[in-house]
Design a protein around this nucleic acid. Sequence first.
DNA 1: TGTTTTATGATTGACTTCAGTCATAAAAGG
DNA 2: CCTTTTATGACTGAAGTCAATCATAAAACA
Lengths: 257, 257
Amino acid sequence: MKVPLHLVEARRQQLAALLQQRSYLPIQEVCSLLQVSEATARRDLRALAREKRIVRTFGGAVSDFNQRFASFRERQTQFRDAKNRIAAGARQLVQPSTTIYLDAGTTVAALAEALRHKPVTPLRVVTHSLPAAETLAGVEGVTVFLTGGHFLNRQSILLGPEAGKALAFYTIDVAFLGAEAADKNGVWNSTEEVVHHQQIALKRARHHALCLDASKFGHTAPAFLKAWSGVETLVTDLPETELLKLASPIPKQVLHT
Amino acid sequence: MKVPLHLVEARRQQLAALLQQRSYLPIQEVCSLLQVSEATARRDLRALAREKRIVRTFGGAVSDFNQRFASFRERQTQFRDAKNRIAAGARQLVQPSTTIYLDAGTTVAALAEALRHKPVTPLRVVTHSLPAAETLAGVEGVTVFLTGGHFLNRQSILLGPEAGKALAFYTIDVAFLGAEAADKNGVWNSTEEVVHHQQIALKRARHHALCLDASKFGHTAPAFLKAWSGVETLVTDLPETELLKLASPIPKQVLHT
DNA sequence: TGTTTTATGATTGACTTCAGTCATAAAAGG
DNA sequence: CCTTTTATGACTGAAGTCAATCATAAAACA
């Protein structure tokens, strides 16, 4: 028999929530958990799948776990080749038996991936980015330290005064930073808070390298990070001729990839 | 025909990696991607599932995106009802506009779940457990702070001197702790390092509550946490008559759930 | 080199899942 | 209050999935 609409919606909501906890929910379990027939369970699953809230599988469903890092994953696929090339270049700057710092952001995340596939060991990694930490956790010879702080759900990073203070516990050999934008004047990022944290990391680091793909050049962003004169190393896929037009003075060390 | 062992392992590795990118991989796709027969695809899937590196589904497989919580999830299903009841009891001790500390461990994780479904707001949560942080991240009115520290992959917790020091940034109203074992003398946990961190948390907390399901009683573990005389509040599913036999003196406040 | 082990693909029958159809009863809507 | 809409569960044939068995050819091992 027909059932009130709000109940249907509530049930599907519940199903979606349930699915976020279980990696896989067979249709039979859906039936028993929701106390509905198989047919209705299927219909609910189909409805949620149509809204892209879950991923349907044969015999059940899976929560779309990419949803969690949704915006992150999306950005990660943009300019993927460029980012991977930059990551490969940046990886050459990583020496065994050192401590590196990994900033948040997709370009630096690509470096974490590169290090996971071709580890430089032994290595100590300090980061405030959960994706980076999780990428490198469990890699033989790599020790991961997460800075503490306020957990920002959307970006999966840790920020705030505690995060900055936590950096004081570590001495960093090379800090790898990303940024949102770059123009003639220098490098920019999305928020003051992020920039503030980056600047603390820079202070604690003996060396630093900026990883910027070509798409970042020619724009600005709300918060100013650093003038070109203060940039030690730049890793980018932008050709040198272009870089000379878009930045000055160009950094001491530039890796074109 | 038989194929070199290292090729088999490499292929399974590739399959596991593939699975981490796709939320769901039907068996047919596995066949075409790996260029193997359905039978072999099934065998590979079964092998990876046995190693708990993936989650098998009917008709395919899913990457175990909770892999990092693998052992965690397993333990979580044990005595689930008891833990949920304890969590519901512990939740009553949570007041709005306070700061609570959540220990690692499955019983306390159940409290995090309970708080996610029935939030007490506004609330500040300090924790060194990634599962707890991710459970509560994004809940309206709940601010999550993660302590920094050494990222222990297997347990998904942050430990070490940095984690202890990070606790100094916070004032905690109630600390919710779990433990591995409890006997006449008091409460025990698995390692000295964990106990050390718990004791720092206890020092920083104005009040504390110990969450212990009945299965924990009557055993010991390698590291001693606290004598019964020092326990302020105990939340347990063990009946009072049993508790009197297994602990003395019994804590001032005991919640039987 | 000769023997043993085993990874593979094909086949099979039992079992499961699926989309579609239909009757029904209750909600929605006028 | 009456009509229309629709959420549900039962049923169905078709299609998909599975574990087990077996022959084979190549790797592993001595």
